[in-house]
Design a protein around this nucleic acid. Structure first.
Length: 282
DNA sequence: AACACCGCCTGAGCGC
DNA sequence: TGCGCTCAGGCGGTGT
């Protein structure tokens, strides 16, 4: 499931193939996969040169000359793959869109579950509006920004971290990993974290995501970068997917339970137990 | 307002 | 072998 590190790795691997190259044609196998308005060759950037790839959290955009762009999201199972010019991609393999780009590059958007999105936008302003609801990018989140966004919250910190309006880019895997590194229970109320805990958490988010980017992201099943490379960070997960197994720090069996409607794994000793409703006194 | 919860969608993994 | 069930979860919409 692609989160910020996976999207960052995708963007980095994409750039050498498509930056400064012109889109020659597009094949649309599923028009209803394109959101906003009905797709046209022009709205899908045919004839334009790609000038930039931008990312904010888990969202990214392929930007063309003149500022029009394609805002994209990988959802759960999305892939954007650079394919050989003679590849026979199509709807049978859940490939919904294929762009043909200069230098015999084909770019295929594949997404079996179709939780992803491709949204044509006409200008840089439209992209800014599209992303306006997102919080600061999690890769560089500051403790002051995080503190400001958590302040009024009564919900569990895990739920707040998953809220893309609070900060953009953290999903279920990296929320659990960052909370473990910061030694904070996922069930703690977001607004009751101390300044020291928030500083620790912001640091843990940045370092967890940074490490994951350097490892090429986490591949559980579906994630591949543009070159079809899987990520290597999965083997470094300290809690995600390890419920019942011993904590890597203290050997206590890791707890797993549903928090914020998501499977959540944490160490009851390193991160504290269930502080679901801490009483102010006693 | 703030939060909970559902539905979208498919494939993997499981028990029988 | 194969069937049916459960689970995975980002996100937008709806309910409380």
């Amino acid at each position: 499931m692609p989160e910020l590190p996976e999207v960052e790795c995708l963007c980095r691997s994409l750039k050498p193939h498509i930056l400064d190259r012109r889109i020659l044609a597009v094949d649309v196998f599923r028009a209803d996969f394109v959101t906003g308005s009905a797709p046209t060759p022009a709205s899908l950037l045919v004839g334009q040169r790609i000038t930039d790839i931008q990312r904010r959290g888990k969202s990214f955009a392929i930007v063309a000359e003149l500022g029009s762009c394609l805002a994209m999201h990988l959802g759960m199972t999305g892939q954007l793959l650079v394919r050989p010019a003679d590849a026979k991609d199509g709807s049978a393999d859940h490939v919904h869109l294929v762009w043909t780009i200069e230098n015999r590059v084909r770019l295929a958007f594949r997404d079996p579950r179709r939780f992803g999105e491709v949204r044509p936008l006409a200008s840089a302003d439209a992209l800014a509006r599209h992303w306006a609801g997102l919080g600061d990018d999690a890769l560089t989140i500051s403790s002051t920004a995080l503190a400001a966004m958590l302040k009024p919250g009564r919900r569990a910190i895990k739920a707040a971290l998953l809220d893309q309006r609070v900060l953009a880019g953290v999903g279920n895997i990296y929320a659990d990993e960052a909370l473990f590194l910061a030694k904070i229970s996922p069930t703690r109320q977001a607004g009751r974290l101390t300044p020291a805990e928030i500083a620790r958490l912001a640091q843990a988010i940045r370092s967890t995501l940074g490490d994951a980017v350097r490892s090429g992201g986490s591949t559980l099943r579906d994630f591949l970068d543009a070159d079809g490379q899987a990520g290597g960070y999965r083997s470094k997960h300290r809690v995600y997917g390890r419920g019942g197994q011993p904590c890597v720090v203290c050997q206590t069996p890791l707890r797993h339970n549903t928090v914020a409607q998501r499977t959540t794994t944490w160490c009851p000793r390193c991160q504290g137990g269930t502080l679901r409703s801490r009483r102010p006194s006693q």
